[in-house]
Simulated assay, not measured.
Amino acid sequence: MLRSYIRMVLFALGLMVAVQVPGFIKDYTQRIDAHRIEAAQALQGFKDTSGQFFRGDLNALVAHYRGSADPVFQRDADNIERLLRRAQLFENEWRALQGNWLQRAWHMATAPNPELLQETYANYRYQVVLEPDAIGWGLAGGLVLAWIAEVLMASLAALVGLGDNRRATRRHWN
């Protein structure tokens, strides 16, 4: 009986932890999108200038700034390149999160941006979202945790000689 209660508690724990996964991925995606939009807005003035003088080529604008003898323009070239790299980072991250749930989860498990992951985690508030993805994650997490605990408990019991039911089996079959 105690084993059944432990299994139920572990299932509930796995369910509550796993149901957080889609919400966390959604928060991370929204954070990426917000940064992506902000980076695009920060580059807009430079894009306008490059459109007017360099057919929209921001790299040509940077090269022009680098070619200037004025140290202010050279410093601006560094700043524009930094903005370009940051905007590209957000764009790549956003694209990686546009796939199906498995692709998003795999990206989050293997290659998220550490800075943005930490930022998302620091601002994440636990939530129970009753969407199909969250329900699926919750049920799968609960079942996996309960199954792992069951296997571990049965293995441990077998190692110490508990759970040997040969006598009970003989008694019932005779």
Rank of each mutant, 00 (worst) to 15 (best):
A109W: 05
L102V: 13
A77G: 00
T110C: 03
W106A: 11
V160H: 02
P132M: 12
L159A: 12
A140Q: 13
E91D: 15
L102S: 09
W101S: 12
A105L: 09
W106Y: 06
I135D: 06
T120N: 09
L145D: 03
W137E: 01
E93G: 04
L139G: 00
A158P: 02
R75Y: 03
A134E: 09
L162A: 05
R125V: 00
R125P: 00
W94S: 11
N92G: 09
E119V: 07
G161S: 06
A77I: 00
A105D: 03
A140G: 14
E93T: 08
N79G: 15
D78K: 07
Q88L: 10
N92P: 00
Q103V: 02
V128W: 12
G99K: 02
F90H: 15
N113T: 14
N123V: 07
L139T: 00
L159G: 06
G141N: 05
E131K: 12
V144Q: 01
Y124P: 06
L139C: 03
A158R: 15
P71K: 05
R95E: 10
A122Q: 15
P114C: 02
P132D: 14
L102W: 12
A157I: 02
V144Y: 01
N100P: 04
L162W: 09
A109L: 08
I148V: 10
L143F: 13
L97A: 04
P132H: 09
A157V: 00
D70E: 14
M153V: 11
D133V: 00
D133L: 08
L143T: 02
E115G: 12
L145T: 02
G142E: 11
F73E: 08
Y121P: 01
H107L: 01
W147A: 15
A109D: 00
E115L: 15
S155Q: 12
A96T: 02
M153P: 02
W137F: 14
